[in-house]
Nucleic acid binder design. Structure first.
Length: 423
RNA sequence: GGAGGAGUCGCAUAGUGGCCGAGUGCGCUCGCUUGGAAAGCGGGUAUACCGAAAGGUAUCGCGAGUUCGAAUCUCGCCUCCUCCGCCA
């Protein structure tokens, strides 16, 4: 959630941020709401003050004085009964309005209109050279990824993943955990369902995002689209000691996405599915250290990619293409020889205090003698399905088999090659 | 899902309608004391919002209600514990 005080005192900054994001949103009505809300709040508090004063005295008087006070109290009560609900409505309207405003882009986030203006920061790793025409992963998997049967069972955009590919998922999870834990990440397997209030706090139901969520009406719960969504609220309504920061988590969860609005896009295979598994990094940080933590997370992503020896490039996302909650965002795109292009496999975001305000996660600033919001960051460890695709296509052999990356072999009982069913 | 019990300031507890935003103990912290420490003594010790400030308001799991007035009474919900049922 955006900082209301900032909106109040420097609305031009918010307007500038919205402009950078290429978003049309009129904040004047929100300011008006805020003004009305504060006026009414002052009024209600004044009435309550009178009520409290009278209430203190009323116990000590008798007779006519008592009767007069009761009369006054009744009048106050009636007035408050009118204003109370009005205040409640204003509060809710204000909160809803505030939640429609995305995070402010960081000063050094490159300004751009949309995806086309993202900038490639660097390319890392050698693209494999084949002395044959590289195939795409679905051809190579040849039955190990089965979307026909899954379509019968669950509909489109699901998959059965079989055999050594199924095993490789766990190898990747283990590799990520084993690599990240020594860096101080606490392993966590979070819930995959979340209450609407908490989800709102994380800024993940705002705007178009809501359409992307699965909702279980019987239980008033959403299915998470990422472990990020339930790792973030671990410290909801908590206050860290500054010494406990940064707090780093590495979590695993299945992710559920409706993929509404992407009809006809990547309809084949497992690149874009309703359900996939992901290892996620998450950090709670001191505000002054969050940029450093952001670079740190990006380094961990690159470390993992380099362990797998997959060619990738780092893309700095421009303001027009950044996520709703992000102040600054990098993506990693991995080279897919079968498609002859880079495809997005990771993202790495600094949400600064935006999500922290929504879930009320703070730390004690001893020097300033007060509590302040922490900064929260999230980054993909491995999006399992997409990394599987990248491994299959980059490690493919002439005979149609797939070499197992060295670093994964120990997690697969020494397996060095995956053969499709027919091979 | 059924029956019963419980949720108060970091922790433990006191508190059955006005003297309670809330006592006590522990913890933490500052000071006195000491060669130093322990003990002892004295003080401090939630969060948020409104306000330039003085100050005010809210919060005793959450929400509604009764009442002039609710931590305290009533109802609904949530969470936890015990027993039963079901179950990976």
């Amino acid at each position: 959630m955006i900082n209301l005080e900032l909106l109040r005192t420097s609305p031009e900054k918010i307007k500038e941020g919205l402009k950078k994001r290429n978003m049309k949103l009129d904040i004047e009505p929100i300011l008006e709401l805020d003004k009305k809300h504060r006026e009414l709040l002052t009024q209600v508090e004044q009435l309550r003050h009178e009520q409290n004063q009278l209430s203190k005295e009323i116990g000590h008087v008798t007779g006519e004085e008592w009767t007069a006070m009761i009369k006054q109290m009744k009048a106050l009560k009636t007035r408050l009964k009118e204003l109370g609900p009005e205040l409640g409505l204003l509060e809710e309207a204000l909160r809803n309005a505030l939640q429609s405003i995305p995070n402010l882009p960081a000063a050094d986030a490159p300004v751009g209109r949309d995806e086309s203006e993202n900038a490639v920061a660097r390319e890392v790793g050698k693209k494999p050279v084949f002395d044959f025409k590289p195939k795409d992963y679905l051809t190579l998997a040849n039955g190990l990824i089965d979307t026909e049967r899954s379509a019968k069972v669950a509909g489109s955009r699901f998959a059965y993943v079989f055999g050594d590919l199924a095993r490789m998922e766990f190898a990747l999870v283990n590799l990520a955990f084993d690599t990240l834990i020594p860096h101080g990440f606490i392993p966590v397997n979070p819930p995959v369902m979340i209450k609407p209030k908490v989800y709102e706090g994380m800024g993940r139901l705002a705007g178009d995002q809501k359409e992307e969520r699965y909702y279980l009406s019987k239980d008033d719960l959403y299915l998470v689209g990422s472990a990020e969504h339930t790792i973030g609220p671990i410290h909801m309504d908590e206050i860290f000691d500054a010494a406990d920061l940064p707090r780093r988590y590495v979590g695993f969860s299945t992710c559920f996405r409706r993929e509404a609005g992407s009809y006809g896009k990547d309809t084949k295979g497992i690149l874009r599915v309703h359900q996939f598994d992901k290892v996620e990094m998450f950090v709670f940080s001191l505000p002054e250290n969050s940029e450093e933590e952001h670079r740190f997370l990006l380094s961990r992503q690159e470390e993992l990619m380099q362990l797998l020896k997959l060619p990738y490039r780092v893309v700095q996302i421009c303001t027009g293409d950044m996520g709703f909650t992000d102040a600054k965002q990098y993506d990693i795109e991995t080279w897919l020889p079968g498609q002859n292009q880079y495809r997005e496999t990771h993202s790495c975001s600094n949400t600064t205090d935006f999500q922290a305000r929504g879930i009320n996660a703070k730390y004690r600033n001893a020097a300033a003698k007060k509590t302040e919001l922490v900064h929260m960051l999230n980054a993909t460890g491995f999006a399992i399905g997409r990394v599987l695709i990248a491994i299959i296509e980059n490690y493919q052999q002439k005979d149609g088999s797939v070499k197992v990356p060295d670093v994964l072999q120990k997690y697969l009982g020494g397996l060095d090659k995956i053969r499709p069913f027919s091979a």
